[in-house]
Design a protein around this nucleic acid. Structure first.
Lengths: 109, 109
DNA sequence: CGTGTAAGGAATTCTGACACG
DNA sequence: CGTGTAAGGAATTCTGACACG
């Protein structure tokens, strides 16, 4: 019945920085800085350069805030994150490989 | 694992009018007018009076747009909507009643 | 009735920089 | 390194009103 996938909604970049500030409790300075350090990637509103964030971005910012409180440097956060990203991709590759393998064995048998 | 309910996300008032315009294709004038006619109820951003809409609001606006294209008056849309709202409440009451009834019968038997 | 528009003001956001440390 | 802040400008939003129909 519903045409909208709840996942896509979380990814839509529609929230401006002031609202993100309210949602996360971070200062605008902090939010922009984390972007500068490549931890977050807002979209830019059409004509002007106004930043737009998704709910996923907000969640990520809250995770970042936690890490920062623990004294982790932006550099570290970024590195950890890319590591996880890669692990996830490798995992998906393995899954795919498994599927193909299973299919092959199935036909042989 | 996830702490955020996808439903609550859809209800969060975080989108400003310019973005709603882009999402719906409606003019800001129209969006504000539908509010004046009690078809939509944005929140107002803290200190200033800036309107904030949810994804649900955006969906509703698109439904309104469709009705308007069909030549339905705002007055009619509002009336139809309240009717459905009431029907839904009555239905929920019936459900509740059914539950109690079932529970009662269960104990007796 | 529903919507466009010009008007003036207020609040938001942006960037680059200086400061502290 | 991470964050606060004052600075000046540009884009956004707001309200009440006049217009057309």
């Amino acid at each position: 019945m519903k045409q909208e996938d709840p996942t896509s909604i979380k990814e839509k970049k529609v929230i401006s920085i002031g609202t993100v500030r309210e949602l996360t409790g971070l200062s605008e300075r902090q939010i922009r800085y984390y972007e500068e350090r490549k931890l977050i990637f807002p979209a830019r509103s059409g004509s002007s350069g106004i930043r737009k964030y998704s709910f996923s971005d907000v969640e990520r910012l809250m995770e970042i805030a936690n890490q920062m409180e623990e004294g982790v440097q932006t550099h570290e956060i970024r590195r950890e994150w890319k590591k996880k990203e890669k692990a996830n991709e490798d995992w998906k590759k393995q899954m795919l490989k498994g599927q193909i393998q299973a299919h092959f064995n199935n036909n042989k048998q």
